[in-house]
Simulated assay, not measured.
Amino acid sequence: MPGFTVMSNQFMGQLPKANVFDGMGAGGNNLSPDLTWKDAPSGTKSFLILVHDPDAPTPAGFTHWCAFNIPASVTSLPTGASSEGMPEGTIEGGNSYGTIGYGGACPPPGDAAHAYHLTLYALGTDTIDLPAGSPAEKVVFMATQHILGKTGLTAHYAR
């Protein structure tokens, strides 16, 4: 039986400039990646997306995106959904840039390629009762008791 999977035409291998940050000399478009998923576990009521860079030069790594309360009826997001409009009911948390929504890859120049882990969680609850801009750590903590399954992708980027 096929399992819960997420796919992307962008979030794989070396990230394209579309998914790279648009500041600090990174020169990207800062667009969230296209995503498509299938075979969510039975009982899924919503989804949570988290993009994290554990290779960032900080003790806790770097959170690039946290989006939650994505309705269970949603099975894909187009490129740029974070800035162009997420599905109705979706809330975006804060990222490590100090903003809300997607913040693209921006490793320090000269660093080896950083790994960017995208995790898609299937949740057995319709909503996580937190406001927009909530820290990803708090969102994941509140979601933990509702996780029915998870899947993910890893991409890399260096400049």
Rank of each mutant, 00 (worst) to 15 (best):
M24Q: 12
N95Q: 01
P87F: 02
H146T: 03
S83F: 04
T58K: 14
F47D: 02
G43S: 12
A81V: 02
I49E: 07
P107L: 08
Q10T: 09
T58S: 15
H117E: 11
L15T: 08
G98Y: 08
A122H: 08
D55R: 08
T36H: 13
P41K: 11
A136D: 06
T127N: 08
M24E: 12
G104L: 04
A72W: 01
V6F: 00
N9V: 13
L123A: 11
P131A: 02
A105N: 10
G152R: 07
G110R: 11
F21L: 12
A112H: 13
N9W: 13
T127E: 09
M142L: 10
K138G: 06
P16H: 04
M142G: 00
A122D: 07
S96L: 06
L130M: 12
V74Y: 06
N30S: 03
M86R: 07
D129M: 05
T79I: 00
S83K: 09
A60W: 06
M142F: 08
P54D: 06
C106G: 02
G124W: 00
Y157P: 12
V6I: 03
P78V: 13
N29M: 11
T125M: 10
S46H: 11
A132E: 06
E84Q: 12
T125V: 15
D129R: 04
P16T: 13
D129H: 09
K150E: 11
W65I: 01
D22N: 15
G149F: 03
G124T: 00
H114N: 11
G89E: 14
D126Y: 00
N19Y: 04
I100A: 04
D22W: 05
L48F: 13
L31Q: 15
F62V: 11
P16F: 04
P16L: 07
F11I: 04
N69E: 11
A132D: 01
G43N: 14
A56E: 11
D129V: 04
V140A: 00
G25M: 05
Y121P: 05
G149D: 06
P59T: 14
F141S: 15
S8R: 13
L35A: 08
A56I: 03
G28F: 10
T154Q: 09
M7A: 15
G28S: 13
N19P: 03
P131L: 03
G133H: 10
I49V: 15
K150A: 04
A115F: 05
Y102K: 03
T44W: 01
G85W: 13
P54G: 07
Y97E: 10
F4C: 02
V139A: 04
L120D: 09
V51D: 10
A18F: 05
I147K: 11
G98A: 07
G98I: 07
S96R: 05
L148E: 12
V139E: 02
T5V: 13
S82E: 09
A158G: 14
N29C: 05
L148R: 14
T144A: 14
P108D: 15
Y97T: 10
T90A: 05
G27D: 05
G124D: 01
N29Q: 14
G98N: 08
A105Q: 08
T44P: 06
V139D: 03
P107R: 10
